[in-house]
Design a binder for these strands. Structure first.
Lengths: 143, 143
DNA sequence: ATATATCAGAGTAAAATACTAGGAAAAGAG
DNA sequence: CTCTTTTCCTAGTATTTTACTCTGATATAT
């Protein structure tokens, strides 16, 4: 029942892009330094975020990444799913096979668990996280 | 975010023991046949269920397994945790290290997810699952 | 040109997952 | 007392996943 580091780092990077946005592209290097994470690994994760159009990239000097949309357009669920695939607790919930298994009593447990997970991750937006972060650190550094 | 087959099978076996209880011990062989699962693998999982006192075992002929307590005494959470360990979505929630990480904004996401997961699995008892099963199959076979 | 980035794909060590295999030990049945 | 049944215990193993690293090509502002 674990979210992989890939998923965790994807969320951290999306949040970093949102918080540190100033119109310009933000480099992997600066994100890796701020978050103390492997540059090359983040690069790899970011590349799938680019492919799924969650972020836009610019190459060369002055290049880097920025969010493709407003922070309010992303949920934690969106972000995790684009990196991790389905968040369902058992594979049987995803494929349409296992027809008879679907009315077993244990299957209902996994359905309820799935609903609870989705309910949480789909209800939290990146904007919400940015706001919470700002409340914690304060706005003093904005001038 | 997956529950392993070990966890899934543990729940299936506990439910099987509850549903097919008739005072006598129930063998792994019969459970494996009913559930169409590997005998040897189930045996391994059952052994940890014995060690954690969730089930009692008897050896030799007429041996097998039975629940140590009433079905109402077990929750899905109990069972999964005894097999899978912590169900928390990220390791950081378990260890007391990562003190500074604990007031990060993403950490709150994992806390909410953790609460949602625990809330579901701890609120479903084995008794409840047995009842639901009986409603599905009906009581006609009891004579 | 050159320094700075992303982009692309391969490689890899370690851990987890999902089993399988073999034999010892206990206990009831004949 | 022996045979069969069943748990108990430990080891092995193939596959997949995880968490990265490495190398080099390509694009772009200065």
């Amino acid at each position: 029942m674990k979210v992989s580091t890939k998923g965790q780092y994807a969320l951290i990077m999306m949040l970093d892009l949102a918080i540190n946005y100033n119109g310009e592209y933000i480099t992997i290097k600066s994100i890796a330094k701020r978050q103390v994470l492997s540059e090359k690994y983040l690069e790899q994760i970011m590349s799938t975020l680019v492919k799924t159009k969650f972020v836009r990239s610019g190459r060369g000097s002055k290049g880097g990444y920025k969010l493709a949309k407003e922070p309010s357009c992303y949920t934690v669920g969106n972000i995790l799913r684009t990196i991790e695939g389905s968040l369902s607790p058992v594979a049987a919930l995803d494929d349409d096979i296992n027809v008879q298994m679907k009315d077993s009593v244990t299957f209902e447990v996994w359905e309820r668990l799935n609903d609870a997970i989705n309910n949480v991750v789909d209800s939290i937006t990146l904007e919400e996280l940015v706001d919470k972060h700002m409340q914690k650190v304060g706005y003093e550094y904005i001038i």
